[in-house]
């Protein structure tokens, strides 16, 4: 690879028909260290400078163009101009602007987060209020239900008491009547039994003693009762 780079020098010098191969090498040296070559080889100087010149004219470099100090002043001047412009533009315009944009964004994000936190808190509060309202309503409902129940119970108790009293009254009345009916039934049965007994005694030809008949019927009914 390196021999190829070296081979480039003679090729460059070929454009000069006057340059002998030996001069071409001098040309290569002269381009890099023009002053040295000129001082040490006066006879070759003309050819050397000419050859180097041809190489440059064809846009061809000999040696390292970076080491040609005749271009340094120009490069350094324009570099400093460029850097000064860039520094000014960046420090006065671009960087403050980007800084502002980034801190704006940071601020917006922080603000949004805080707002979100606030909304979250509000949502929590609302949930708590809802829960409280719900439990209040439930308690109220319980209270109303209890009150209604108590009312109904009272009415019910009253009604039951009234009904019981009526039932008791009717029962006692019915018992009284049943008693009366039983008494009268017993009295009827007794008189029927006496009458039947007296008729039977008469029919058999006896003389019915009213007192004996009564006693016998009573004794019989007593035993039946």
């Amino acid at each position: 690879m390196f021999s190829l780079l070296q081979a480039a020098a003679p090729t460059a010098a070929e454009t000069d028909t006057h340059a002998a191969p030996a001069n071409a090498e001098a040309a290569a040296a002269a381009a890099g260290h023009g002053a040295d070559a000129a001082a040490h080889a006066p006879a070759a100087t003309g050819h050397a400078v000419e050859a180097a010149g041809h190489a440059e004219a064809a846009g061809q470099a000999v040696g390292m163009p970076q080491l040609d100090i005749t271009t340094f002043g120009n490069q350094i001047f324009w570099l400093l101009v460029t850097l000064a412009v860039l520094y000014w533009v960046l420090s006065k315009v671009a960087l403050p602007r980007i800084d502002a944009v980034i801190s704006d964004r940071q601020g917006a994000i922080t603000g949004d987060l805080m707002q979100a936190e606030e909304y979250k808190k509000k949502a929590k509060d609302a949930e708590a209020a809802y829960d409280k309202a719900l439990s209040d309503a439930r308690a109220e409902a319980h209270k109303i239900v209890a009150a209604q129940k108590a009312d109904i119970q009272k009415d019910l108790d009253n009604a039951i008491a009234k009904a019981d009293a009526e039932i008791a009254a009717r029962t006692s009345e019915s018992e009284k009547r049943i008693g009366a009916i039983r008494d009268s039934a017993t009295a009827d049965a007794r008189s029927v039994a006496r009458d039947v007994t007296a008729e039977l005694v008469r029919a058999f030809g006896g003389n019915a003693d009213q007192g004996a008949i009564d006693a016998a019927v009573d004794a019989r009914l007593k035993g039946a009762a």
């Binding site: 480039a8 460059a12 846009g59 000999v62 163009p65 271009t71 120009n74």
Partner: peptide, 11 residues
């Protein structure tokens, strides 16, 4: 034609 250093010439 090898001219690898031509690109560095200041003109």
């Amino acid at each position: 034609a090898f001219h690898p250093m031509d690109q560095f010439v200041v003109k």
